Simulated assay, not measured.
Amino acid sequence: MYRPTARDRGGTFPAVRVMTFNIQHGQGVDGRVDLARIGAAIRGANVDVVGLQEVDRHFGARSRFRDQAGWLGRRLGMEVAYGGNRERSPCIPGVGRRQFGNAILSAFPITDRENIPLPRSGTHEQRGLLRVRIEAGGVVWRVYATHLQHDDPDERLVQARAIRQILGTPQHTVVLADLNAQPTTPEVRALTDALVDSWAAAGTGPGNTSASPAPTQRIDYVLHSADTRSRTVTVLTSPPASIASDHLPVLADLEANPDQ
């Protein structure tokens, strides 16, 4: 399958096209679970790397016990890294552990991967930060996918600060995230104090992503280090993207900045 390279993007410096997409285990706004629609949205955007949240892996009957990230990777001809954060014992002989978490799909080889648990309290859902390393256009990119706690701003702040510490001094770093918080909140500012919010840098309009198909909140983000530029960023509203999940995906063209 042909995949565009940095030169094909039309920019001066090495570039990647990235997407963040909370897929709600493939369940669309019509209540149907249909991974083919998720795949069509990704394929239609011609992305190099996509970070997915709410991804089932043999998790349950709601997704037919399918390895959703693996299925999408095969469908799209992309490499897959998966980070399971909720785990349960198998309930079907011969099928792996039941998992729910984040995934990263890449058109470039994934040379390293790690899933890091994030802080949680009480009975809250375990969250994680999935990291991969890829090389594109001669640049080594560190790409992360994450999904913060949905109903506790204090816990989100703790998780955001943990991510900030894990990132250290970010270089050619991209964070693809459902932060479950709007841009002015302390938890988002804990990250944007060190990372560039691509929408603030290059987006037009409110950039709302949730809940599809008529979103009123901007809670899904493409964040990147200061040595990277946002060339373009859009909320994808193609026919498959607008019905495939309760979130709309964010699509960004990022370029390595040689001046940083």
Rank of each mutant, 00 (worst) to 15 (best):
R37H: 03
S245E: 05
C91V: 15
G94K: 07
G77C: 04
Q126R: 15
P170D: 12
R98S: 09
R113C: 07
S89K: 14
V250C: 05
P119L: 10
S210Q: 06
R133K: 15
T169Y: 09
V188S: 10
R75T: 15
R88I: 00
V140H: 13
G207Y: 04
Q260E: 14
L148C: 03
L129M: 08
I116R: 13
N85T: 11
L254I: 07
M19C: 02
Q260H: 14
P109Q: 10
V143P: 05
T5L: 12
P186N: 06
T169L: 13
Q27W: 01
I23S: 06
S225F: 05
A107Y: 03
L179V: 09
A81H: 09
H150D: 11
L157E: 15
Q165Y: 05
A145W: 02
Q171C: 11
E87P: 00
S230C: 15
Q165S: 15
E125L: 12
W199P: 01
I134P: 08
R164E: 15
V175R: 08
G11W: 14
R98D: 07
R97G: 03
T146I: 10
T111C: 03
S242L: 13
T216V: 15
P249M: 11
R37P: 01
V33I: 12
D48W: 05
H224S: 07
L167S: 07
S89W: 04
D178Y: 07
Q260T: 13
E187V: 01
R161F: 07
D227L: 02
G207H: 06
L35Q: 12
I243N: 00
E125M: 07
P213N: 05
R62Q: 14
T185P: 02
D193S: 14
S106P: 10
A41N: 11
L248H: 14
H25R: 12
A226N: 11
A200L: 12
W199V: 01
I104K: 09
G31I: 06
P239Q: 12
P90N: 03
A145N: 01
V222H: 02
R57Y: 01
A214Q: 14
A256I: 06
T204M: 09
Q217A: 13
P239W: 12
V18F: 07
L129D: 06
L105H: 06
L148W: 06
R3L: 13
A45L: 11
T111M: 11
V132W: 11
S225L: 08
R98T: 10
A252E: 03
T146E: 04
S106E: 04
P117G: 09
F100N: 04
P14H: 03
A69W: 04
L236K: 00
A256G: 02
P240W: 08
I219E: 05
S198I: 00
R62M: 09
Y144A: 07
H172A: 13
V196P: 01
R75P: 00
A61N: 00
R231K: 14
G168V: 11
N46Y: 03
G26S: 04
V188C: 04
I42D: 10
G168K: 11
L52V: 00
D152M: 08
R3Q: 13
N208Y: 13
S210I: 07
L254N: 05
E114R: 15
